[in-house]
Computed example of a mutant assay.
Amino acid sequence: MSHAVEKKMFHSFLFLCFWHLVDAVMIKSVMEGESVTLQINIRRQKNILDIYYMNSIQWSWFRPGESQNVRIIEHDVKTGDIRYYYDEIFRNRLQIDSQTGSLTIRNIRTTDSGLYQMSSRFSVESFNVTVYAHLPTPVITRYSTCSLSSGSLQNCSLLCSVLNVSHVTLSWYKGNSLLSSISVSDLSISLSLPLEVEYQEKNTYSCKVNNPISDQSTHLNITEHCQPCPDSVHCCGFTEAVIRLVLSGVVGVATVIMVVYDIRFRRAEKKRRTQSQSVVE
C-alpha cells in the first residue's frame, strides 16, 4: 500500500473518530398518520473505509419516560441485509435507506413519539420525534341563561370545549386579539373555556384549539347561540323587564279585585234570597 493511500486512510479515520463525538439531537414534529424521515448520511466519505469500518447501522428507540432503548432495525453495510426488531409495534412501517442510513417511519402514531438514535462504529445521531394527534373542532355551547348587565345591555354566557386532547392550547379571540386561553401538556383530558358577550354587539369572536403544527377554529354566531328567552324576565332588556313587572302587577291587582267583587256579589245575592223567603212565609 502506497504512502499516499495510508495517509488518506489515516486522515479519514481521524475525521470519523471526531465525528463520533458529535451527538446533536434533531427535533421532529409530525401529525399522526403521516410519514417522517430521520435524515442522516452515513456515507459522507465514499472510500474504502465504508467497507472496513462501517460494519452496520443500527436504529434504536427510547420511549418517552423510559431510560432503556429498544433496537428496532439494523442494516449490515457489507451484505446489505436488513433485520427488523420490535415488529409488533412497527410492523411493515419502517424503511431504511441503504445508501444513506436514513430511517423512514410510515403511518406514524402518537405512541411512536420518543427519541430515535442511529449508531454505527464511528457515529451516533439522535432525533427527538413528537407525534401530534389530529385536532377536534371546538364546540361552542350556551351554559346559562342571559343576565342583565349595567344599563339595558344583555349578556350571554358561553363555553368552548374540546374533548380528549393533549399538548394543546384552547383560546378565545375577539377579532385577532387574544382574550383568554388555557393549555394542557401530556395528559389526555377535556378542556373548556368560558366567555361572556353582549347579546346585541357586532364584534367577531372565535374559539381556537392549536398545537405546535396545526389548529382548528370555530366562529361564534351570537344570534344563533344567544337567542333571548321571551318568557323569562332575566332574558329581557331592563326597560322591557320593568314593563313586564308593572303589567304583571296590574293584572294581579285586577284579578284580586275581581275575586273579591265576585265573593261579595255571591254573598249579597244569597242574603237577598234568604230575606225574600222569610217575607213569603
Rank of each mutant, 00 (worst) to 15 (best):
Y205I: 06
L49F: 00
S2N: 09
L245Q: 12
V70T: 14
R109L: 11
E240M: 05
C207R: 00
Y116N: 01
E198C: 06
I42S: 13
E88V: 13
K28G: 04
T204S: 12
Q277E: 07
S98K: 14
G101H: 01
T137Y: 14
Y199H: 12
R266D: 09
E88R: 06
Q227P: 02
R63P: 02
L220S: 05
W172Q: 06
H225E: 13
R106Q: 10
I57V: 11
I57G: 06
N41W: 12
I57M: 12
V256L: 04
E196K: 09
G237P: 09
Y53D: 15
S190V: 03
L115P: 04
S248T: 07
V162C: 14
L247M: 02
I222Y: 04
T100C: 00
N210S: 15
L247P: 07
S232L: 11
G114N: 08
L179F: 05
I89F: 14
R43S: 15
K271E: 10
L191R: 03
L193G: 12
V25E: 07
L195V: 10
L179P: 15
S278K: 14
Q95T: 14
H11G: 10
S183H: 10
N47G: 12
L191D: 12
D112Q: 04
S56Q: 08
V279G: 04
S149N: 13
V165D: 05
G33P: 13
K7S: 10
Q68G: 05
I73T: 07
S161I: 10
V250S: 08
T145E: 14
S102F: 02
H134A: 15
L14D: 11
Y205L: 09
S150Q: 06
T100W: 04
G252M: 11
E281H: 10
I72M: 03
S12F: 09
M258A: 11
S185G: 14
N164T: 03
P194G: 10
Y116R: 02
E201V: 09
V260I: 05
S29G: 11
E74G: 06
L94M: 14
I213S: 03
L103G: 00
M31F: 05
I51G: 02
H234P: 04
D87A: 10
G33T: 03
F265P: 01
L179M: 09
S102K: 01
L170T: 04
R71H: 01
E240P: 02
K174G: 15
S217T: 12
S206V: 00
S119I: 09
H134R: 09
K208S: 11
R44C: 11
C229N: 14
V131C: 09
T130H: 03
Q117V: 01
D23F: 00
